[in-house]
Nucleic acid binder design. Structure first.
Lengths: 166, 166
DNA sequence: ATGGTATTGATACTCGGTCTCATCGGTGAG
DNA sequence: CTCACCGATGAGACCGAGTATCAATACCAT
């Protein structure tokens, strides 16, 4: 009934939860688990469905609440796909960063801010704005998907890619 | 019944429409007008309401269709506010650019890509991704709002700002 | 005038997300 | 141990943005 894969990632999330003074309830543990075992972006609906598949049924609201919580702890972040759809991704809570998202499999990687900060400052200065926040989103094809699509186009195979959001 | 402020901006939009082979129908002209006379970001619902205020009532779907059209012509772009809400902004259709949005009044300015392109390439290279697209969104306070908020905090006045989305 | 295509409006629907509210459960005080 | 309390939960209503469907209409060319 309760999966608890308990990867390091899951633990990290649960600890973050407790550190912030929230109860690590079974539901939240499950969400942490699901979220941690996802290597790409996901939606609330994904989690809900995966939860049900694990024989646990949570209210929709609970998922959203958990996700809000994790978002506020910066353990997950919301991003806006090129299609305009929203999705969530797990990420490192500490340093300011951006996301590089594979449009093939949905995998997402944190990208350090790097020189972007300076660039942003420069833009703000040039326009006379006081910049409060910025967001950079990068979309492309990850190495695995690139390789897959190359070998596929060579062999005619049409499956594979990466594990994908799972 | 039909406002037709017909600024240069409005004309530009209508021409873009015709150039692309679409009819410049009254509805579309109105949308162009509304969009052009907005100096910040707006939503479909905003346009609808403003249209009605001008005594013209269009179907909701028509607005969305017009907006889709303008988006495909790159005359407007959709952006994602920090709140997660979607909004549209007018912009220059030609060069690749990003948006700098005032969180006070909603005004938005196009920002040239500048050195960002190189930075993006570098990130792609570093992660082994083939970058297909990127999006940078900057949020801050525009000079007018900054000034307004400064004088306000000095005088205790609480109105003003910029024209705001209108 | 006539047919065909583009446009439109109404309406139903989907989807992500929020709100409300009654219930449930763990924890701490007594 | 019991009780009260408060946080967490689920169900379901609700909401706003956007899409889909479909019939009615406007426009254009012939």
């Amino acid at each position: 009934m309760r999966p608890s894969i308990n990867t390091i990632q899951t633990k990290r999330i649960i600890e973050a939860l407790e550190r912030a003074g929230y109860q690590a309830t079974p539901n939240r543990r499950l969400v942490a688990d699901l979220v941690a075992s996802t290597n790409g972006h996901f939606t609330a609906a994904d989690l809900l469905e995966r939860g049900r598949r694990e024989q646990v049924k949570m209210g929709r609201a609970t998922i959203f609440r958990a996700l809000d919580l994790l978002t506020s702890l910066r353990v997950v972040e919301r991003l806006d796909l090129p299609s305009g759809a929203h999705a969530y991704v797990v990420c490192e809570p500490d340093k300011h960063h951006h996301h590089l998202v594979c449009s093939g499999c949905g995998r997402s990687e944190d990208v350090a801010d790097g020189e972007l900060g300076a660039l942003v400052d420069e833009i703000g200065r040039r326009h006379g704005y006081e910049i409060q926040s910025h967001r950079l989103e990068l979309f492309g094809t990850c190495p695995v998907c690139t390789a897959a699509s190359e070998s596929r186009s060579a062999t005619g195979d049409a499956s594979a890619e990466q594990g994908g959001p799972a």
